[in-house]
Simulated scan of single mutants.
Amino acid sequence: MMYGYGIGWGWMMLMPLVWIVLLAVIVWAVVRLVQRPGDRTPPQRRETAQEILDRRFASGEIDADTYADARARMAGREPSPR
C-alpha cells in the first residue's frame, strides 16, 4: 500500500522551486513599491543650445538679428555689425 503518497515525490521536488518563485515575486513587488515615482521614468534628453535657440526663434521670443548673432557666437564667429 502507498498510503496516499503517489504524487508526493513530484511535489517534494517542485516545492523548493515554488518557494523561490514566490520569494522572488515578493522581493520584486517590494522594490517596485519602494522606488520613487521619478525613478520609474526614463531620463529625458537635455536640449542643446542650438535647439533652445531654434525653439525661441520659432516661438517669436527673439528676433532674426538676435538669432543670427547668437548662432554666430555659438559657431565661434564674430557677429556681424548692425
Rank of each mutant, 00 (worst) to 15 (best):
T41D: 09
P81D: 04
I52S: 08
E61Y: 02
Y5T: 07
W9F: 12
M74D: 00
T48D: 02
M13S: 05
P81W: 06
G60Y: 03
V25F: 09
V18K: 06
G8V: 01
P81N: 09
Y67E: 01
R32S: 14
I7R: 15
R45I: 08
P79Y: 00
T66S: 01
I62N: 00
V34T: 15
P16G: 03
E78I: 11
D39W: 11
A58E: 14
L22V: 06
T48S: 01
W28A: 12
L17M: 14
E47Q: 12
D54G: 07
S59H: 01
E78M: 14
E51L: 07
E61S: 07
A58K: 15
E78L: 11
V30N: 09
P37R: 10
P37L: 04
M13I: 07
P16Q: 05
P43Y: 02
D69L: 04
S59N: 02
M12V: 05
S59K: 01
V21S: 11
L14I: 09
Y5I: 10
V21R: 06
Q35F: 08
L14D: 03
L22E: 04
I20C: 07
T41F: 10
M15N: 01
E51A: 08
I62C: 00
G60R: 03
P42G: 10
I26P: 04
A29P: 11
I20F: 08
R77L: 10
A64K: 04
D65Y: 03
R82V: 04
P81K: 08
P79W: 01
W11P: 01
D69Y: 08
A70D: 00
